[in-house]
Design a protein around this nucleic acid. Structure first.
Lengths: 328, 328
DNA sequence: ATGAAAGCGCTAACAA
DNA sequence: TTGTTAGCGCTTTCAT
């Protein structure tokens, strides 16, 4: 294995100069720089990261802990984060907590051990309620999930507003009995529930909501029961892509016609929402922007650890489609 | 920061003993072990990974480079790999090459720099054609993509067989003019194409295939043209979930009825294939098994670097659904 | 079973 | 601008 002394010898300079050159530090003559670069190239030298990290205390690494990598929403965010990180020469440790607080805690510990510069986290509810960012030796940026009083940098959707507008849209279509199915684990479901409640109240309508475990199977079961009911609700609204999926399955299985028999709508502009017939009205989340913003926020925090906490609230986009067409 | 000497002092032993205890090495008395563990706990000691890696040369880390993290197929594999790794106390560096050979090369270099124990890779075609596993300082296990003569451990689907059976099924439904749309970049598309050709030949039917760039937009464009044609083909078959998505979009846009006007089928058992009406016949890939097997293969290779190269070929599962129902 | 001590390869403080 | 050198925190050899 070729090391820094080999390069130094070959270039006829000291290891310090080599170090300066490969780290891009100033204080090296152009000639030296060239000689070192030539030696690096000819020897195929690559600095030992472990040594470098041990000595410098820096890792140029950041962590990304998502709550469920299989959820396309988080996949998109991961891709966006990774892309920006790649452009900035940063390494990303991508971890999947699988909605398991224990795994999440493990990875948070691991981030500490890895001495990362910072972490982007979509927290499980368990940790969110007791999160003290100051207790971690690295800056933390939350994505997707965040309570009103959480004291950390965060990038989130305006969940209340998005659900409000979605509900408002349904009401404008003349729908009256609108049932909201929401994932009760986590913060986004309940926040969206609030938006739904507010919109219903504003229209003087009676709300009806079903909190469920955020799995499509559960959503399907609950939706199936609702579809059996006489009279049937006018509309079903899902608080997430996962819930929407289960809901769509139930609708298909029950053989009811959308939007004639019932209207449906939900969150997350997943590819399949435009494939089914009719296509489904959803709130699109700006996943790319969320990921990029989170990374930018993290980088800024690393640069200025003491600046005040920021929360970036992004607006969802209402995509009106066939599933909520007004009945004629 | 508390370090190993602090623990040694507190426990009244040498740093060597502490090291042995925290590394689970033998040659320590039970009493010493307990004293050290107590000290570790009371001080909240966590070994410095950089120092440990520098000194020992080991990292207990492996790399996973997927060609496209947004493809659910790879997401599933990532989750499976990560899950097994987590259980084995291994870290996974998950990287997304984004189907970009340059990014792939960068990450492969990075794996070398990180001194990982091994890498699981779904290679882009660019690298696959010239892959020399021996030129990497770590063992390599390929997933999903692999040429017949690739000299590396690999876990792949029997693409030929899967496409053959899928085509056979269509032929058995009485369909005659069956057009195969396949991603021409990569190895899986062409391999599946071969299976299709063989099945058509065996039935004495004239094949017709369209190689396309593996993006759903391209698939959609090509499918739209095919749907316009008079007479229309009897069936459209997609070589991947991505192609199938574009195909389904085209079918929906054209307003043709499945399976009466045309039958469609493809690869990858994605959630939406059961949501559209009718649901779509597909070949399911055992993603969990692929991921788990890849990691196991890698671990075995790490343990025995010189054992002969293995290739695990998994069988796809034909899921017959409404989109290929025989016409009455 | 235990401890003393030599580095792993690099960076950065300091001297020149 | 350049070089010398002292460690970063740990593992591991070699004595004991």
């Amino acid at each position: 294995m070729v090391k820094i002394v080999d390069v130094a010898k070959q270039a006829g300079v000291s290891t310090a100069s080599v170090s300066r050159v490969i780290s891009g530090l100033p204080g090296v003559s152009e000639e030296t720089r060239e000689r070192v670069n030539a030696a690096v190239k000819s020897l195929g030298y690559r600095p030992d990261l472990a040594a470098r990290r041990l000595r410098s205390g820096r890792t140029d690494t950041l962590g990304l802990i998502v709550s469920d990598i299989r959820n396309p929403f988080f996949t998109e965010i991961s891709r966006a984060v990774e892309d920006v990180a790649y452009q900035n020469g940063l390494r990303v440790l991508l971890c999947n907590a699988d909605e398991d607080p224990e795994k999440e805690a493990f990875y948070l510990e691991m981030m500490r051990d890895e001495n990362v510069s910072g972490v982007i986290l979509s927290p499980t509810l368990a940790i969110l309620s007791s999160l003290r960012p100051a207790s971690y030796p690295f800056p933390l940026v939350l994505v997707d999930r965040c309570e009103r009083d959480t004291n950390a940098d965060a990038v989130v959707l305006d969940n209340f507003d998005a659900a409000y507008r979605l509900t408002e849209h349904l009401i404008a279509q003349g729908l009256r009995s609108i049932v909201f199915l929401y994932g009760s684990v986590g913060s986004t479901g309940p926040q969206r529930h609030q938006g739904y409640l507010a919109a219903m109240a504003a229209a003087g309508l009676a709300p009806e909501a079903e909190p469920i475990a955020p799995r499509s199977e559960r959503a399907r079961e609950v939706a199936e029961v609702l579809l059996q009911r006489q009279p049937r609700p006018d509309a079903l609204v899902a608080s997430s892509g996962l819930v929407l999926l289960g809901m769509a399955e139930a609708v298909k299985a029950a053989g009811v016609t959308v939007p004639t028999d019932i209207a449906i709508a939900g969150f997350d502009d997943l590819p399949w929402t435009r494939l089914v017939t009719p296509d489904i009205t959803v709130i699109r989340q700006p996943t790319d922007e969320i990921g990029q913003t989170a990374l930018r926020l993290l980088l800024q925090r690393v640069a200025a650890p003491d600046r005040s906490v920021r929360r970036v609230v992004l607006r969802g986009e209402l995509l009106v489609r066939g599933s909520t067409q007004a009945r004629v």
